[in-house]
């Protein structure tokens, strides 16, 4: 598979999850595990441009695909517009849910366009749990990021 633009190959057990492959084989520890029931969304990455929960995806399911993790968003140190929007709007506190939030947010904008409304953002963030921010600033950040991505 292709991970963050680099071609990667490895032998894995059938049962290995994508998140285990990313964290333990590739040491891409930005993708987190916050639950074991596919609810919290800390593990969200993009496979072929679409957000997936890597804790419920087998590594072999991504075979031959393009995987983007939080580590692959910034280009030459310059933050992706959504990352920048999270920083500008204080959309993160402890940072643990943040990688999944940012990956989901980009997907939300990709699917709903840059003028996505608040109700849609809140509804579509339902699969990402944050305990710190109360979501207020995350929602603000998604809107700001949407504008920047659209421009």
């Amino acid at each position: 598979m292709n991970v963050n633009g680099e071609s990667i190959s490895g032998e894995v057990e059938d049962r290995m999850l994508l998140v285990e492959f990313l964290r333990e084989h590739l040491r891409l520890t930005g993708t987190h595990v916050g639950c074991d029931t596919s609810q919290c969304g800390a593990c969200v990455v993009h496979v072929n441009g679409v957000s997936v929960k890597s804790c419920t995806t087998l590594a072999v399911q991504a075979e031959g695909g393009d995987v983007t993790t939080i580590e692959g968003l910034a280009i030459n140190g310059e933050l992706h517009p959504m990352q920048q929007a999270f920083k500008d709007n204080h959309g993160l506190q402890c940072g643990f849910c943040t990688p999944g939030m940012v990956m989901s947010a980009i997907d939300i904008v990709n699917r709903n366009g840059s003028d996505v409304d608040e109700a849609t953002v809140r509804k579509e963030l339902e699969g990402n749990i944050c305990r710190c921010t109360g979501y207020h600033n995350i929602v603000k950040a998604v809107h700001a990021g949407a504008k920047n991505m659209g421009g």
Binding site: D36, Q39, I129, G134
Partner: peptide, 17 residues
């Protein structure tokens, strides 16, 4: 004993403040 059974507040449960 899991997020399936214990309801955490999510983005669509709350407004902006």
């Amino acid at each position: 004993a899991s997020y399936m059974d214990y309801a955490m507040p999510r983005a669509d449960n709350v407004p902006s403040f």
